[in-house]
C-alpha cells in the first residue's frame, strides 16, 4: 500500500493526535502569554489529570463489562471532568509552590525554569512511587469499533470521542479568551502587565486563573490521551515537548496559533511516520520545528496573545 492509499487514514489519525497536542499546547501558550515563561512542569499537570480521570473511570466502573449508550457517555464525561479537576488542582499548586514565591522575590527568569524542572522531577517520580511505574490502561468505557468511513479511512469511536471532546474544548477556550471578562483580563496582562494593573486588572488573580485554565485543558487532554495510549508516570514528557513544539510552531502566546500548530504537528508526524519509520516520528516533529523557526521565527501566526482573537 502506498502513501496515497493511506493518506486519508493517516490524516484521520494525525488529526486525532494533533487535536490533543493543541489542547495541551494551549496551557503553554496561555502561561507564556501572561508571564513570558515556559511552564516546563505542564507535562506533569497533564499526567496527573490522566491518572485522576483514569481512577475516576475505574472507580465508577467496578465490573468488567463494557457499558454502552448513555452509561458510556456519562463515564467518559466523568473521566474528563475529574481529569480536568485534577489537572486544575495540580496547576494551581504548581503555581503556588514553584512560581509565586519566585515572583515575590523577583528571581531571574532562568530560576523559574529550573524550579519548574525541579517540580516536574518531583511530581513525575512521586507519581511513579505512588502509582507504580508500569503502563496503566484506561478501562474500556465504550465499545470501540469502526463508526464510519471517510474517503475510505476508518474512523473509530475512539477517534470521534477524542476529536469531539478536543474540538469542544478548543472552541470553548477560544470563546473564553475572546469574549469573557476573564479573557479580557488575560489579554490585557499579556499585552502589558504594568498597564493592566493600572487599569484595575487583578494580575495575581489572572495569573492563577490562567494556570488553572491551562490545567483544566491539560487534565482533560491527559485523560483523552490515556484512553488512546495508556497512562504511566512518565507519560507527560513526550506529548509535553510535542505540545510545546506545537505552541512555538503556531507562535507562542497566540491561542489560535497553538491550535493550528497542534493540528499541523499531528498531521506532519502522522505522514512522516508512515513515509519514513514510525520510530523517527519524534525526529520529524523536531525537524519541522527547527525548519519553521529558521524561516519564520515568530511561528506561523506569530502574534502575541494580547493582540490575537
Amino acid at each position: 500500500m502506498g502513501f496515497a492509499d493511506q493518506f486519508w487514514q493517516l490524516t484521520v489519525d494525525g488529526l486525532m493526535v494533533g487535536s490533543l497536542y493543541a489542547v495541551i499546547a494551549l496551557g503553554y501558550t496561555l502561561v507564556y502569554g501572561v508571564l513570558q515563561l515556559i511552564n516546563f512542569a505542564h507535562s506533569e499537570v497533564f499526567m496527573l489529570g490522566a491518572f485522576g480521570g483514569l481512577f475516576a473511570a475505574r472507580g465508577l466502573l467496578p465490573g468488567g463489562a463494557t457499558p454502552s449508550g448513555p452509561a458510556s457517555v456519562g463515564l467518559v464525561a466523568a473521566g474528563l471532568a475529574v481529569g480536568a479537576a485534577c489537572g486544575a488542582a495540580a496547576a494551581f499548586i504548581l503555581e503556588r509552590v514553584a512560581y509565586r514565591p519566585l515572583r515575590r522575590r523577583s528571581a531571574p527568569r532562568l530560576a523559574y525554569l529550573i524550579s519548574a524542572i525541579g517540580a516536574s522531577l518531583f511530581a513525575v517520580n512521586l507519581a511513579g512511587k505512588e502509582f507504580g511505574r508500569q503502563n496503566v490502561p484506561v478501562p474500556d468505557l465504550f465499545t470501540n469499533g469502526t463508526l464510519f468511513h471517510v474517503f475510505g479511512a476508518q474512523v473509530s469511536t475512539q477517534t470521534v470521542v477524542v476529536l469531539g471532546a478536543a474540538v469542544v474544548m478548543l472552541v470553548l477556550l477560544d470563546r473564553l479568551v475572546a469574549r469573557t471578562r476573564l479573557g479580557q483580563g488575560i489579554r490585557a496582562v499579556a499585552q502589558d502587565a504594568d498597564t493592566a494593573v493600572l487599569m484595575g486588572v487583578n494580575v495575581e488573580r489572572v495569573i492563577i486563573l490562567t494556570f488553572v485554565i491551562g490545567g483544566l485543558l491539560a487534565g482533560a487532554g491527559g485523560f483523552l490521551y490515556a484512553m488512546t495510549f495508556n497512562a504511566s508516570y512518565n507519560m507527560g514528557f513526550v506529548p509535553g515537548v510535542k505540545a510545546f513544539t506545537a505552541a512555538v510552531l503556531g507562535g507562542i502566546g497566540n491561542v489560535r496559533g497553538a491550535m493550528l500548530g497542534g493540528i499541523l504537528l499531528g498531521l506532519v508526524e502522522s505522514y512522516g511516520g508512515y513515509v519514513f519509520q514510525a520510530s523517527y516520528k519524534d525526529v520529524i516533529a523536531f525537524l519541522v520545528l527547527v525548519g519553521i523557526l529558521m524561516v519564520r521565527p515568530s511561528g506561523l501566526l506569530g502574534v502575541r496573545l494580547g493582540r490575537a482573537a
Binding site: A98, L102, A111, G118, N125, R133
Partner: peptide, 21 residues
C-alpha cells in the same frame, strides 16, 4: 529506591530556587 531519589532531587531544586535563586 534509586528511582525515588529524583523526588528529593526535585524538591531540593525547588526549595533552592525559592530561597536562593
Amino acid at each position: 529506591p534509586p528511582t525515588d531519589r529524583y523526588i528529593y532531587f526535585g524538591a531540593v531544586i525547588v526549595v533552592m530556587m525559592i530561597f536562593r535563586p
